[in-house]
């Protein structure tokens, strides 16, 4: 899995920022479990398209849909670019 695009979805009034990572492939359950290693994961298979969220305290929250090619990340501190860099590295490190 490789991130092919990063876009800002919302630059909030508070210190948070919402970004969208687009991947070269669809997100499957295996990759969701991989992302889940980052923090506290919730996964909802009972929804028509399973929804998942992963919270890493004081850093970010990821939310996404199984089968889609994008995830949204709400970064707690828009100025802390190190957190984003680490997340990008982690996302790109996974191989099927």
């Amino acid at each position: 899995m490789i991130i092919i695009n990063i876009s800002i979805k919302e630059d909030c009034l508070d210190s948070t920022i919402i970004k969208e990572f687009a991947f070269d492939q669809s997100i499957n359950r295996e990759y969701i479990n991989y992302l889940g290693k980052l923090g506290s994961m919730q996964y909802f298979p009972e929804f028509p398209k399973p929804f998942f969220s992963i919270i890493v305290d004081r850093e970010f929250k990821i939310k996404g849909i199984e089968g889609e090619k994008t995830i949204r990340i709400i970064f707690d501190n828009k100025n802390d670019l190190e957190v984003e860099k680490r997340l990008i590295l982690f996302c790109n490190r996974f191989t099927l």
Partner: peptide, 9 residues
């Protein structure tokens, strides 16, 4: 709204 849109269309 995200879940409604992306999980439930």
């Amino acid at each position: 709204a995200f879940i409604l849109s992306n999980s439930f269309d």
